[in-house]
Every structure is written in C-alpha cells, then in structure tokens.
Design a protein around this nucleic acid. Sequence first.
DNA 1: CGATGCGTTGACCTGCGTCAAGACGAGTGG
DNA 2: CCACTCGTCTTGACGCAGGTCAACGCATCG
Lengths: 216, 216
Amino acid sequence: MHTAAAHATKLELTKSQIVIAPQTAGLFRANSVTTFNAGAEIYAPGDKAGTFYHVEFGAVRIHRLLSDGRRQVIAFHLAGETFGFEADRTHSFFAEAIAPTGLRAINRAANDQALPELLSLALRGMLRAQEHIMMIGRQTAVERIAGFLVDMAERQGGLEHFDIPMTRLDIADYLGLTIETVSRVFAKLRAAGLIKLRSIRCIEIKKHEALRSLCA
Amino acid sequence: MHTAAAHATKLELTKSQIVIAPQTAGLFRANSVTTFNAGAEIYAPGDKAGTFYHVEFGAVRIHRLLSDGRRQVIAFHLAGETFGFEADRTHSFFAEAIAPTGLRAINRAANDQALPELLSLALRGMLRAQEHIMMIGRQTAVERIAGFLVDMAERQGGLEHFDIPMTRLDIADYLGLTIETVSRVFAKLRAAGLIKLRSIRCIEIKKHEALRSLCA
DNA sequence: CGATGCGTTGACCTGCGTCAAGACGAGTGG
DNA sequence: CCACTCGTCTTGACGCAGGTCAACGCATCG
C-alpha cells in the first residue's frame, strides 16, 4: 500500500467513519480505518503481505495484468467483506479502491487466536474463486452477466435495485469479456424487460426469476 | 466417497502401497490408504465434507457439471498434493480418480492443532484457483496449453518428459476449450518442435524456454 | 464552453466451437 | 494370430459468439 498516502482522500467523510481507536472487525483485533479514493492502490504485486483488510464502506477490485496489458479482475470486495490473505510472503495481485473506500487493516500476526475464522475466510475465498472459474470457463456472455447481476444483488442484501461501483470495463475484465459485449448484453437484458438501468451505475432487477433462469 | 467400496480396485497393488497403519501425511494425523480405480468417484456435490485427502499415488480431478452437461474441471491433484477442504459442511464439486489412485484420508476434526498448516494449504488452493482464473479468463488457446504443460512439468519435478494422467477431454474441460482445439494446439506445438509426443499420454518438452515464452 | 472519460451501437472479422469423418491402440474373443 | 469393438485422438470444413474497429452520445469538470 505504498501509494496510499499519495492518494489520501479529499472527499468529505464524516468523523464517525474515520474512527481512530482499534476495534473489532468480526472477531479480529483490528486497527483504525484508512480511506482511499477511487482508483487508489491498496497494494501491488510484490508488496509485503501479512495484513488483510475489512471493507468498512466502498468497494475494492483485485486484479492482475498480463505483460501485454490484458487485465483479469479476480474479485470484487464490497462493504462487510474481507480480503488480502496471501499464501506467500508477498502479494501477487493488485488491490485498488474502485470507489471512495474505508478499510480496516487487520494484522495477521496479532490474530493467532482467530485462526479458525481465518481458515474459514480462506476456504470461502477459495470457493468464490472456484465459482468464478465455473463462470468464465464454460458460460456464455449472457450467462456470465446474469450470474454477475444475481451475485451482486445478493451481496447487497437482495434489494430490488442497487448501485454497482464498478465500470463496464471492470465488469468485462472480471467476466473475461470486452466492454462492448457487456454493454450489448445489458442492452439485451433491458430490451427483454429483465432489468432496468435507473442510471448508468444503478441497476433494478425487474424479473428476478427470469434473470436467475439465465444462469447456467 | 459413497461409491468407494463399489469401485474397489482390481489392480494388483503392492502391499507397500496399501499400508493399513495410520501414519502422518505431512504434519497430519491420518488414516490408512484407500485405492480407487480410474474413473472412481471419491466424493460428489452434497456429500458430507470434513475429511480431506493426501494423494499417495495416481491423480484426481475436481469438477462440476452445468445442468446441460457442460463440464468444468476445477483442478487436478497429483501425487503428493492435498485436496478436499470445503468452506461448507458439504462438498460442492465432484472428485474422481483419473488413474489408479491411492488416497490417505485426513480427518479435519482430529487435526485442530495443525490449523496453521491447514490455513496454508487453503491459501495455496486459493492462489491456484486465482491463477486458473487468469489462465482461462484472458488467455488464448495456445497460451493456456503452454501454461498447462509448463505447470504439469513443474509439478512432476521438472523432468524433461512426463506422463499426463488425464485425457484430452479432461484438459479441454480444465482450460475451457474443446477437445478438438486441445488436439490442434498439441499438433501445432509439435510441428513447431516445442514438444514431442512420445506416446499419447507422454509428453517431452523439447524447447522449454520457447514453451515458457508462449505463456502470457 | 471544449475537453476528457465512460458508455453505446453498428459493421465487420476471427479464433475457437461444431459437425463429421477417419485413425489409432488397447482389450476381447475366436 | 487376426477380426472386431470401443474409447480416445486427430484432422478437415464450416459457422458463429464474441472480439475488433470505428463513430457517436452523454455526463462531468475545469
């Protein structure tokens, strides 16, 4: 997280969001909340690992670049989720805020007693990655987008409409598609009356069951 | 592993491979070795989880089916590797032997003291899944196959030639391709002199660096 | 306002999937 | 030993889902 300071937020955040005193994120002994602007880097490949993060508000994108610039987004992490575990001493992906984001750092070394919780988080992360493999390995563009929307809806608590913090490019790179295909599929789902785009980043699911039935 | 008994091996296995006495697989308290024929199911989605497995010999395929029969192979596990952890109480994938295979079952509940090792295995599994996402999300058929071959070579100890236990269909379903594409890419790599097919399941890497340079 | 970044839409192209026809090799039985 | 079968693999011809290229709409911002 070497660029964190450089990207220090210029947003007006309420005092209540930037609590300084340590406090528990779940069962962990945690530190204070650090805020990041949209686009700010949290860590990069090669950075020392060992700290992980609880998203207090905002959203985070985990990704990696191929040498020629192709990008794969590995995961999104929304408010309430935890990320940043690594098998190795150093990180192997980029983590960036995709919206104004508050993170509570949790030091792994200081939480030896919480190993079972950590294991559970790691296993859940593995399962998520495996579901992601299913998604991009064998599903069509429509199936991927439908699955993505259903997943996002569920992770926001199942509301009938919700904001997505990521751009079309983020979605495309997450699903292994292009921005144009994402846009076209959105248009198709809208034309079919399954979703409504309240605004460019606010999605309303009109026919939940129909959308779910598109998921393979 | 409800079909284990039904599939009990008819192969002649040496006594030394079917040790009955408990013994440690790494740092774990483990049970005896069970053998499986090629194609035998080890567990299925919905089966009770909580036990994981150390591959003594042979190879295992983890996969899932979509409703219409499309299959995605999530992982292969070779001798010396460990698999079968789950985030939930039940398994969410199939595990099947793809060759005559010996597995040592390890009961998670009996290994609470080995939590750090378990965590490390889970994190490594997550990393592997994430690398897999990179592979199938953004890489071409040639890049995927090259990456697969390099990976297999490394996991067999970096020998200049090695057997692959899986069929072309397994490889295709692992890489999100079709069997025909896998076959064509193999032919292409062979024509370019990068690999040699000693037999249909025995691959010799002739130009290691060239092959590696094909990986994105 | 113009500029800049994101999103949409259309026309065209291509990498890989699909379909189809063998080839090869292991196993089986006569 | 050959003949036959069955599963796996290969190769070719063709088609299409999604990528590429290009033009334009639409906010936001200085």
